[in-house]
């Protein structure tokens, strides 16, 4: 047996191998699948966009809040005078 015969035998053996009988179906499914994939991608994009909108809305609403700037007078109450009820009397402080 020479090298050519070895090669021929090897090649003939590989040529005997056939593709699986569902090959055409598998390819057609992959070709038709991108259309479904595109629909799902749009849905995901829509959800992501909604989340972003909600986040910015929240930030926007939050930035509308204005802190109350009223000045409150602080009562400095000395502990030693804690039982001095006159300090709590409104008429005394007016």
């Amino acid at each position: 047996m020479n090298a050519d015969d070895l090669l021929n035998d090897f090649i003939e053996k590989e040529k005997q191998i056939k593709v699986n009988p569902y090959f055409t179906l598998q390819v057609m499914r992959k070709i038709e699948q991108p259309i479904e994939r595109m629909k799902i991608s749009w849905q995901i994009a829509l959800v992501a966009f909604s989340v972003v909108v909600v986040v910015f809305l929240g930030i926007g609403l939050g930035s509308l809040y204005v802190a109350d700037n009223k000045d409150y007078a602080a009562l400095n109450i000395n502990d030693s005078q804690i039982e001095n009820f006159q300090l709590y009397s409104v008429s005394n402080h007016e």
Partner: peptide
């Protein structure tokens, strides 16, 4: 007409 592509697959797959 995507479905007709299978004719080409069957012919050229081997």
């Amino acid at each position: 007409d995507t479905s007709i592509f299978r004719l080409l697959i069957d012919q050229y797959q081997p």
